[in-house]
Design a protein around this nucleic acid. Structure first.
Length: 896
RNA sequence: GGGCGGUUAGCUCAGUGGUAGAGCACUACGUUGACAUCGUAGGGGUCACUGGUUCGAACCCAGUACCGCCCA
């Protein structure tokens, strides 16, 4: 006998281990392939709500397809997460009082990272298991394991040979805290309240004349190499071609005409610092200006012994003063420069200024554009294919609006900076000869050979110290995890994968790049469908963040309510294209749903409901059973179709509604009399039907709530695992409309009586008689059939037939008949009169609107015939009802 | 500035060109040996606003307002 409640903590781990031990997560090897590759969580990660949602949705699909007989592979793995992991380990070393990475050196540091990875890298995997994720863990991969690293090398070398990877000296986004280049995508713009300083730059040879430039970054002025004005700006026409003397430095720099200068903004003249600003860099290239870097890799001023800075300068006391800024942090330098300019009378004005400041998303400090040599992927070349396949529909986005976002980015794509000045990651397979000549190759030996061939003798090569952007290896994930570059059976069988499930925040970082790489190396899309899910917010719609303190920990909710409850909550709220607001009350509600199911099964168990594999629901004779079978079939159809369309919320709602509102509330209540005192044949049929419907529920619910359903399956003697059983079939021929109509009559009867009793303030415990008046033959038959059930559920002592409504009755219209509740002594006649009048009014209101519609010529001619038919039918029903109600009202009025 | 989304019950949200829905919260009552993590009944909505299309609009279109996100 089952306990009253399901205890997830006792069951989840045991079941999970049993599944895993039995190999239930492995592909069956039979049926059509179905494959999902997991968005690899960072090895540093621990499960947050986003993971919980992402993996719940994947698990739902994977479990569904498995039950449907597909050959399912859910490929798991983790990402080495270059910067994130390196930071975690650095922090750990610092906390332990160990030397910094710079002190211990690259090799030693990497040992520490690997050690950390072995110890802590699987935390999130274990957390995914708690969620119930049915990944094939025997195939767990890591972006830096041997096979995947081989894929990375091969891709890099191939793209290099094809000219799609190149090295270039360009201005890049530099994170001065992490001391590495980062890609455009890793830069976040933050609106910041700053200042716009207006500086006077003296015109050369025109004593006392200045040009005013406005800047938000005074510290960069030391690297100015021009002042730009708009070519059409009348104010400055005569100055173009002249020079200014850069204050504090003494450098002579030209005034150039360039459209970059906006006459509307500030003074209309702008200082140009090509080595510290992306726009200025372009201006510098157009006018062939020198590019002077004035900061080092940590964004401290770099002036002394800086040949670029000092080139052509005369040593003055002014310059000497400026050189004291060497080694200052950029913001301190800014302060001092502003002060000094003011002292010199060169600060015309300062205005508050709201502007965007670029921050590194990992380091959290403003990035400093920096002129360096980096490796780039020619993303534009690869993007063309990635656009084409989505345009053609080879890969579809769900919801479709993300397609546009995807296109917008790809159509304006910039070169992808893939080198990082970090240590943790795939080291770039490039070696340099003594003269700087580059040899790219998968192995050092091969590079040596190339060099020998090139130089005619063996030379010492030096390997590029940089590593690749983490997303470079992630981009290969759908094929590298399946074995590429080897031609493995898995690769042939599961690529392209069926669907990718991920968040919108990594469409550019990951989805687009997988598409580019997949097409280039596999000559086919990496996935047919891309389902983009929303963000999980707190219950007030706030983004969860540590600083706000509103983070809800999925593991806590799992501990409290079970994994099933959390999963169901996320699934039923997973509406396409809309964020999820998660509240604990909701999780609790779905935990209660589990309890409800648990007790329903418990009830069946108490009534000796078993499981008969040979039972065919088509053999049912009782309307009750034919009805519930039909309802179950409809539900099977809805759940299946919804999941096929990625409408997780609709699927979850359908099974929830059927289980609670139909199966528990009505079917189980209605079978109680049968099970207690029905004849043997009816009892047997009902037990078998109930068992069959219970199994349909367990199966339909299993992808959402794997644990409780599996447990119930086991506890009711189910063979094997529920998770490996077959998905139910929606056999439409089992839907019996007559049975549905009959049960609708019964249910309405009970509902109406209950409602009337409550309104008449009949005590809940009181048994009262009812009289069915002017019933036709079919209603009489139904009443005979259902009397026991109706009496029980409506708390009626007896139901008799009559031609007249007994005096002092409450009256309920049910189709052609009236249910009268003689309530002599109990009934409040005025209350009943009011009740009837209220119902009359509602009926009349609806009738009026229908009549208006039906008397509209255009409606009759233009609306769909079935709609017209429906409307007429409904009006007839209402007219009957109205007449009955009116009679009832008059009868009652005569008594008052 | 460009793009996308949102505005429906007290709260959180579904929803479809043809009778406005759920969960939670609320009110009343608790009775039927599955379930009080429950049951029964009930109250509560100008579907943001303004136009348009349509026989008919919460739904389609256009505009406005406010909120959110992404990109520059």
């Amino acid at each position: 006998m089952l306990d009253k409640h399901f205890d997830p903590n006792q069951v989840e781990q045991r079941l999970y281990e049993a599944w895993e031990k039995a190999g239930a997560f492995r592909p069956s090897g039979k049926g059509e392939p179905f494959c999902i590759v997991i968005p690899p969580p960072n090895v540093t990660g621990s499960l947050h709500m986003g993971h919980a949602l992402n993996n719940t949705l994947q698990d739902i699909l994977v479990r569904l397809r498995r039950m449907q007989g597909y050959d399912v592979l859910w490929q798991p793995g983790t990402d080495h997460a270059g910067i994130a992991t390196q930071m975690v380990v650095e922090r750990k070393l610092a906390a332990e009082g160990k030397p910094t990475r710079w002190e211990m050196g690259r090799e030693k540091f990497l040992e520490e990272v690997w050690k950390w990875k072995e110890e802590s890298g699987n935390t999130i995997i274990n957390q995914l298991k708690r969620l119930g994720a049915s990944c094939d863990w025997s195939r767990l991969r890591f972006t830096m394991d041997e096979g995947l690293s081989r894929a990375v090398l091969k891709v890099f070398v191939t793209l290099w040979k094809e000219g799609l990877i190149y090295k270039d000296k360009r201005l890049v986004n530099w994170d001065p805290k992490l001391r590495t280049a980062i890609s455009d995508l890793e830069v976040v713009q933050k609106e910041t309240q700053g200042h716009l300083w207006h500086f006077r730059y003296p015109i050369e040879g025109e004593e006392g004349r200045y040009i005013v430039v406005a800047t938000t970054r005074p510290e960069t002025m030391l690297g100015d190499t021009a002042v730009a004005v708009h070519p059409d700006d009348e104010r400055y026409k005569d100055l173009v071609g002249k020079n200014v003397i850069l204050p504090l430095v003494g450098r002579r720099i030209p005034i150039v005409a360039d459209e970059h200068a906006d006459p509307e903004k500030g003074s209309g003249a702008v200082k140009i610092t090509p080595a510290h600003d992306f726009d200025d860099f372009e201006v510098g290239k157009r006018h062939d200006l020198p590019m002077i870097t004035v900061m080092d890799e940590t964004a401290h001023m770099f002036l002394k012994d800086n040949p670029d800075f000092l080139a052509g300068l005369e040593m003055t006391s002014e310059l000497e003063e400026t050189l004291k800024y060497h080694g200052l942090d950029r913001f301190e330098a800014r302060k001092r420069i502003v002060e000094r300019m003011e002292r010199l009378g060169l600060l015309e004005k300062v205005k508050d200024h709201l502007h965007m400041v670029p921050y590194g998303d990992r380091g959290g400090v403003p990035i400093e554009p920096r002129l360096t040599e980096q490796w780039f992927v020619d993303a534009a070349a690869l993007a063309a294919g990635a656009i084409r396949v989505v345009e053609r529909g080879d890969t579809k986005f769900f919801p479709a609006n993300w397609t546009k976002t995807y296109f917008n980015w790809l159509k304006d794509i910039q070169p992808w900076c893939i080198s990082r000045q970090l240590w943790w990651g795939h080291q770039i397979p490039a070696w340099y000869g003594p003269d700087g000549k580059i040899f790219v190759s998968e192995t050092e030996e091969e590079a040596q050979k190339q060099a020998e061939k090139h130089y005619g003798e063996a030379v010492e090569l030096k390997r590029d110290p940089d590593v690749l952007d983490t997303w470079f290896s992630s981009a290969l994930w759908p094929f590298s995890t399946l074995g590429w570059p080897d031609d493995t059976p898995e690769l042939r069988r599961y690529y392209p994968t069926s669907v990718l499930i991920t968040g919108f925040d990594i469409i550019f970082f990951w989805v687009a790049r997988m598409m580019m790489m997949g097409l280039h190396f596999m000559h086919d899309v990496p996935f047919y469908d891309v389902y983009i899910h929303a963000l999980v917010r707190d219950e007030h719609g706030q983004k969860m963040s540590k600083s706000k303190g509103n983070v809800i920990d999925p593991l806590e909710l799992i501990a409290k309510y079970g994994a099933d409850a959390l999963r169901f909550t996320l699934a039923i709220q997973a509406v396409m294209g809309r964020d999820i607001r998660l509240s604990e009350a909701r999780v609790q509600g779905y935990r209660n749903f589990g309890t409800k199911l648990w007790n329903a099964v418990r009830f069946l168990e108490m009534n000796e409901v078993g499981r008969d594999a040979a039972f065919d629901p088509a053999s049912c004779r009782l309307a009750l059973n034919r009805w519930i079978v039909g309802e179950a079939v409809k539900t099977i159809g809805e759940v299946t179709q919804s999941l096929d369309d990625y409408r997780f919320n609709d699927a979850a709602s359908a099974i929830y509604h059927f289980t609670w509102d139909v199966f528990c509330d009505w079917y189980l209540e209605l079978i109680k009399p049968v099970l207690k005192e029905g004849d043997a044949a009816a009892q047997e049929e009902t037990r078998k039907t109930a068992g069959w419907v219970r199994d349909v529920i367990l199966k339909l619910l299993h992808p959402f709530m794997p644990f409780i359903t599996e447990e119930l399956w086991q506890r009711t003697g189910g063979e094997g695992f529920l998770m490996l059983s077959s998905w139910p079939e929606a056999r439409e021929e089992l839907i019996d409309e007559d049975a549905a109509e009959e049960l609708d009559w019964v249910i309405t009867f009970i509902r109406e009586v209950r409602s009337t009793r409550a309104e008449m303030n009949v005590p809940a415990g009181a048994q009262i008689p009812a009289v069915l008046v002017s019933a036709n033959a079919e209603s009489r038959r139904r009443l005979k059939e259902w009397e026991t059930e109706i009496r029980r559920l409506a708390r009626l002592s007896e139901i008799t037939l009559a031609d007249e409504v007994p005096p002092k009755s409450a009256q309920i219209v049910l189709a052609e008949a009236i249910i009268a509740l003689p309530l002599e002594g109990v009934i409040d006649l005025d209350a009943e009169l009011k009740r009837l009048e209220k119902e009359l009014a509602a009926t009349e209101k609806e009738m009026k609107s229908l009549q208006a519609r039906l008397s509209n010529e255009k409606f009759l001619t233009k609306a769909k015939p079935e709609v017209v038919e429906q409307t007429k039918h409904r009006l007839e029903e209402l007219q009957t009802k109205h007449a009955k109600l009116e009679e009832a009202r008059q009868r009652l009025a005569a008594m008052v």
